[in-house]
Write a protein that binds this DNA or RNA. Sequence first.
DNA 1: CTCATACCTGTCATATGTGACAGCTTATAA
DNA 2: TTATAAGCTGTCACATATGACAGGTATGAG
Lengths: 248, 248
Amino acid sequence: MDNYRLFEYISQLNTANTYNQIKQVCTTFCQHLGFDYFIYGSRIPTSLVNPSYIVLSGYPEEWRNHYVEQEYLLIDPTVSHCMEHITPVLWEQFTKTTCKHDKTINKLFYEADDYGLCNGISYPIHSIHGEAAMFSLTTSLANKKSRAHIQSTFAVGQLFASYVHEAMKRIPDNSLLAKTNFYLTKREKECLLWTTEGKTSWEVSQILSISERTVVFHINNAIKKLNVSNKQHAVARAISLGHITPQF
Amino acid sequence: MDNYRLFEYISQLNTANTYNQIKQVCTTFCQHLGFDYFIYGSRIPTSLVNPSYIVLSGYPEEWRNHYVEQEYLLIDPTVSHCMEHITPVLWEQFTKTTCKHDKTINKLFYEADDYGLCNGISYPIHSIHGEAAMFSLTTSLANKKSRAHIQSTFAVGQLFASYVHEAMKRIPDNSLLAKTNFYLTKREKECLLWTTEGKTSWEVSQILSISERTVVFHINNAIKKLNVSNKQHAVARAISLGHITPQF
DNA sequence: CTCATACCTGTCATATGTGACAGCTTATAA
DNA sequence: TTATAAGCTGTCACATATGACAGGTATGAG
C-alpha cells in the first residue's frame, strides 16, 4: 500500500464521528489489502471483574454467534497473544505448531475454516490505563498462498489498527460516559495518589501539610464521585479510569 | 524498506539478549532509514509516585545531559503526546503551529536544533499494565526536506518500536527483578481481585466460601510478598505489576 | 518419612477507615 | 449580592483492617 492511500485512510479515521463511519473505513481498508473479513474488539478495564467491551465486527454474523456461544474468547490463542504482547501474530503460527495437541484450540481453527476464516493476522492494541484491544484481518486463502500477502501488510495493519482504536475512543459512548463523566479535584487526586502508595490518611496529611480530617474529607468525596465503596475500590477505579497517572 | 529487511531487523531483535545488542540493531535501523539519531525510553509504573525508567539512547550525549538538566521531559510535547495517544507524532507538528506562543517549548526545539535534532518522529508504545514507552527517530534535515522521507517510515517505525519494546522487556534487569521476582498464589490473587472491587474481607469470604480469617490470611501474605504496607498499596501494586488482570 | 507449600481457622488488642453530625474561609461566576 | 465550588477542620460511633498469638489438613517433592 502506498503512503498516499495510507494517509487517506488515517485521515478518514481521524474525521469519523460514528461507529458506522469507522466500520466503513475498516471495510474498505480490509478489501483494499485483499482480506475478506476484519474485526475490532476492545476491553476497557472499568472494573477488573466485569470489564466493558466494544466490538466492531466485519465478521460473518454466524461465526460471531458461534464464537460467543462457545466462549472461544477464553481459549483463543490469538486473543491471549494480543493480551500479553504488543506485536502482531499470524494465525498460522497456532494452527501449525504450538497447538497441535490441544484439541479445543484445533477445533476452534477448524470451525473458523468452515466459515471462511482460514488464515489471518491479529494486531494487539494497548492504550493507557491497561486498555487492551485487537484488530484482526482474515482471508479464506490457505496458509501457503496467503503467507507472503499477509506479511506484506504487517506494518501498515498495525498502524491502521492504532488509528482505529483512537477513532473508537473519540466516539461518545453513552454506556461508558456515565462512568467517567465527572472529574476529581486536585486535592482529591493528590490524596488518592498517596493512598496508592500505601500511606494512611494521617501520613497523607503530613505530606500535604493539612489535617488528617481534611484528607479523610477529600477521599470520601472521591469515593462518592467514583461511586465506589471504599479506599481499595477507589484506588483501583481511579487508576483504571485514568484519574491518577504515574508522576514523572 | 522492503519486507525482507524489516523481518531481518525483527528477527535480530527477537534474538537479542543484551541492551547493547538491541542498541546495535536500533542504530543500524536508524541509519538504514536515513535518520541521524534514535532514542528509546520506557516508564514502568512500579509505583505511581516513583516510576522506574529504562532508556536506550542513540542521542548525542551532550543533548541528553542538557535535556535531563533542564527537566525537558516535563514539558516536551512529543512526550505528552505519546503518553496520551497510541499514534505517531511528527515533531514539525509542534514547532509550527500549536506551540508558537509557548516560549519554553519553543526554546526546547530551538536548542534541539543546535544539537542536530531538527525534525523527527516519535512513536508511542503502550504495553500491558499501563507501561508506557516511546521511540524517536530524528534527522538534521529541515522540515520541508525531511517531511516526505519521514512520512514514508511512518508504518515500519511503529512496528519496529513495538519489537524494540518487547526485546527490552525480555532482558533481565536486576533493578526491576527484585521487585517482581515472586509469585502470588491463586487464592492470594483471588482475594486481591475482589478487594479491588471494593469487597471487604468478610464479603470476599462469602464469595470464595471460606472464613473471613482465611481471607485476611491470604491478603496479609500478599501484602508481605508485595512488600507493601496495606490493602490500598497492595491493590495498586498488584495491578501495576500485572499480578491481577481483568477477567474475561 | 520429612520438608516445604498451599490452604485453612481461631482469638485478641490496637490502628485505621467510614459515615454522620456540624461549621469555617476563599475564590469565582451569575 | 447571591450562589456555587473548592478547600479546610472538628467530634463521635461503629466497622474494618492490621499484626501477633497459636494451630490445623492436604499435597507433592526429595
